[in-house]
Design a protein around this nucleic acid. Structure first.
Lengths: 193, 193, 193, 193
DNA sequence: GATGAATGAGTGTTCATTCAT
DNA sequence: TATGAATGAACACTCATTCAT
């Protein structure tokens, strides 16, 4: 039956909306239409249910990032795609991205928690991806000359800020937002744009 | 004695690190070196203590934004100052900014909660401030022509992303970060930069 | 398969080591390598499994006592044999004796529970057996004159104490222990020993 | 107020009657006329309440044993006093002795638990005390010659058996029991008695 | 015979809060 | 101001047990 699925989906929603500590196992089970002990049949406890959901969300997000390594002509096209894929992730899995955004801050002090390890991994991945783009772009003359390391951080901040904004306030712009972000970066990086 | 101060400072730290629901009144009182009932002497309850702290943090942050309305020659200088004042806020009140960043997502669904009203106000203030800058800058030819509304959103996302990054991972860059952000915007907005 | 046997043996061990309330059906089934519902296929429930085991243990112990009614020349030889058979029981079925010793105290208030009825029966049996020995021995001059009723109680206490000692702390003496007990009684009961 | 006392006394009674696992914190609090959380105000948890009670019982028992080291003319008088003090302990603190008797078997496997350490200490104390008596008594000719080590074990078994019997079945004899035990030992140890 | 999935009733424990002092 | 003692309500979790297969 889909009772386990139901449990997980409900938990995703509640954790995302109310946070881990603000959500009770009773509430999850009730809204999922099952009894509380079922949580403990399928998971070792509340924390494992939470971890399972987070892991799944991180996996899905990472898979989307990894799918990006395709060939493109220009370096900027790669950056454009990165912005697009982040945007798409927020559109496709809004609750899970919001869950990550809102749940992880409280757990980031524990360097062994997934929240830390995975967010770090994603951050590092972005650094590597964007550094590569910038370095090659600058070398080839596609981009103006900028300090790579710092500019990468700025671009990551921009992407993170967009994700946060869009997942917390879904009302705020869709395509227009992404296009403006792409244009903003293009003007900043391409010479004579 | 400064017991009340002590209580508040401890609460700020714990709320910021562990979230509202993850922090107990017993923990606050113990780490503050007082007894639990004292919280109820100074505040109506845990929620009011939290609200008090949040209100204070928002006030302080807003005061910093408001102090910005000075005269500057160029519009870009205003944008530069806005980035600077946000950076400065994170530097000066890191725990309180982190508290806002990590506590508010879980409360943003309640449109009467400070977390919603104040964040909304701050968002609107940024929109107004940046819209003004862009409109005047485009009109005067200081800036290239960009879609104002969307570009404002992008810039707010950038600022938010920087605040988030810097308050969650204090290790990540300081001045270099801000300078790179300013430069990134300058190249994007000023013609022939 | 011997799954039922497995179940029972595991239950004996766990009940003896941890007590009835300290042992869960899940633990029994897991350590027996079967699933929980199988307990309910073979027994009406946990209590019946426990009762079954206890009854079996009491039966076995009683059978050993009953096997004692043989002819011996002297009355003291009967007492010696009683001590020996108790000793042997602890050696042969240590876990089940420990189970009785450790599980029954908590149930002895319920005068309908096996723990009460069977322990009472065993006590009464010992009283009858030892009373007979003492009375006949005193009458025949084999024993010195002692108050029968009280001395019987003392000897039962000695036997119980030995059983308890040996089942809880298996390290403590074996044959030497029994021989010393027999000698202790002989000197106390036989004139001019 | 005597609420804490009440709690402890009720817990002693229930633990002694039903065992640790068979007694719930709710039951304790209800029968003590207080609310459940009060247990957690005065103790760290159920286990600590239990431990506190056990420690107290062992202390009291040990104090009684220690009070024994007085001067007596004969060695047998010392043995007589030991039997008497054990008897007295069961009379004065029957529930706590029963608690020890019935609760410790299930915990004796953990060699760091009080049940193990304290029972071991009491056992060792008895061994030392009785060994001394026997050795000196045999040397002086007060006692017949017996194997000390084994005879000591037999006497400890006797004392333990009496304690067990009397604490589990309070109906069973009082003074007569003790006198018979003393007489039993006297006949066994003193020459030509 | 045997099991995976599920549950009602309870378990020990913690929470924010109150009250008498 | 400040606290020790106490509590109602809820918490995450476990229990023995059942049922469909």
């Amino acid at each position: 039956m889909g009772k386990k699925r139901n449990l997980i989906d409900t938990a995703v929603r509640l954790f995302a909306d109310q946070g881990y500590d603000g959500t009770t196992t009773l509430q999850i089970s009730r809204e999922a239409g099952v009894t509380e002990p079922l949580i403990y049949y399928h998971f070792r406890g509340k924390e494992e249910l939470f971890t399972h959901i987070l892991e799944d969300a991180f996996d899905e997000y990472f898979r989307r990032l990894e799918s990006l390594r395709e060939d493109t002509v220009t370096e900027f096209a790669k950056i454009e795609k990165l912005i697009g894929v982040n945007q798409q992730a927020v559109d496709d899995m809004p609750r899970r991205i919001r869950l990550i955004m809102s749940s992880c801050p409280a757990r980031i002090k524990d360097s062994r928690h997934i929240c830390y390890t995975r967010m770090r991994a994603i951050y590092d991945w972005h650094v590597a991806y964007l550094s590569g783009c910038l370095e090659r772009g600058i070398a080839s003359g596609e981009f103006v000359s900028v300090p790579v390391q710092e500019t990468v951080q700025v671009m990551i901040a921009l992407i993170n800020g967009m994700n946060r904004q869009r997942s917390l306030f879904p009302a705020l712009g869709g395509e227009g937002f992404r296009d403006a972000a792409v244009a903003f970066c293009r003007r900043s990086l391409l010479p004579g744009a």
